[in-house]
């Protein structure tokens, strides 16, 4: 029973970290730009497809692992490939923001929804053109599981899940550092709080917004990369469910709150896994039930930030 509880909790944390990585980009873009990006799920899917190509190429250059050390080297190669794949999303995000999104900042929000929905459809066709209509898989999951992790402390658990949790935590800590400590991050926050004042003191809001959108795309792509190297596959509709769950996560955490997205993602991950464990039919409803319960108590979300990154 206790071992099951631990495993289900770890499964929840693993899923929560996946959700956080996807939702972080969405909440960054919304928190600073005020844009609800419906194409976010497709940026995530694009990251997964690009990962298939880059990681597939890179792992073809290295020998199959024969022991723990070579498995670790393999995992590093896969993670570097995932970062490279996500980096492809940086210029994609920058172009989307500067060419398509920028002209409609001053327009009603419905234009943002229409535009980003159009981008969603376009991205799906771009992916279909690039990688075909059927699922693709870089096929590295089982090899990543050869990296010794929990076995070292006498507990059997998939190493890929552990890697995801470690990487997800690193992403969160880096984002906190970036927005709290770095000069660029503080400029981004200042721009989010008061655009006019930021402009008055010489900040280029255009460049800031482009940077933020590109960052959001990067983290969406990185979330897709982490899923792509896992047990699932990259396929055309894969962006839909994560988009919906990302909305759930950022609503729970408080729209625009980074820490809220982190806590919200872990709550959704863990509580939904516990719920399925106790009563499997609630699988679909569990994340929304969590959202409902939290909004009843705190209608503005756990951290309640609106319009700025915290």
């Amino acid at each position: 029973m206790i071992e099951s509880f631990v495993t289900h909790t770890l499964n929840g944390l693993y899923y929560g970290f996946i959700l956080f990585m996807i939702a972080s980009g969405l909440t960054i873009i919304f928190g600073v730009l005020g844009v609800l990006n419906l194409a976010h799920g497709e940026l995530y899917a694009l990251g997964a497809f690009v990962t298939f190509t880059i990681v597939g190429y890179l792992t073809g250059l290295v020998a199959s692992p024969t022991g723990p050390v070579s498995a670790l080297v393999f995992a590093v190669v896969v993670l570097l490939g995932s970062l490279a794949a996500a980096a492809v999303l940086l210029p994609v995000g920058a172009i989307v923001e500067s060419v398509f999104v920028r002209p409609i900042y001053e327009r009603a929000e419905v234009y943002q929804l229409l535009l980003t929905y159009a981008l969603l459809l376009i991205f799906i066709d771009v992916m279909k053109f690039g990688w075909g209509a059927t699922p693709v898989d870089p096929g590295v999951y089982s090899t990543l599981n050869q990296v010794p992790t929990t076995e070292l402390v006498g507990f059997g658990y998939p190493s890929y899940n552990v890697i995801v949790m470690v990487v997800g935590l690193a992403v969160f800590l880096w984002l906190v550092w970036f927005f709290d400590r770095s000069k660029t991050g503080r400029i981004v926050r200042a721009t989010a709080i008061n655009r006019d004042m930021a402009t008055a003191i010489g900040v280029s809001t255009d460049r800031t917004f482009t940077l933020v959108f590109a960052m959001g795309a990067f983290f969406a792509g990185f979330g897709g990369a982490m899923v792509s190297i896992g047990p699932g596959t990259a396929f055309l509709e894969m962006g839909l469910d994560p988009l919906v769950l990302s909305f759930v996560v950022i609503v729970i955490g408080g729209l625009g709150s980074l820490k809220g997205a982190f806590v919200g993602a872990l709550l959704v991950g863990v509580i939904s896994r516990w719920a399925i464990w106790q009563y499997p039919p609630v699988e679909l409803a569990a994340p929304f039930a969590v959202m409902l319960a939290i909004l009843l108590v705190k209608p503005e979300g756990l951290f309640g930030t609106w319009g700025e990154i915290e």
Partner: peptide, 12 residues
């Protein structure tokens, strides 16, 4: 259908 995680069912 089309889920991205079956770990809870597998653990059971």
């Amino acid at each position: 259908l089309g889920t991205d995680d079956m770990s809870t069912h597998i653990e059971e």
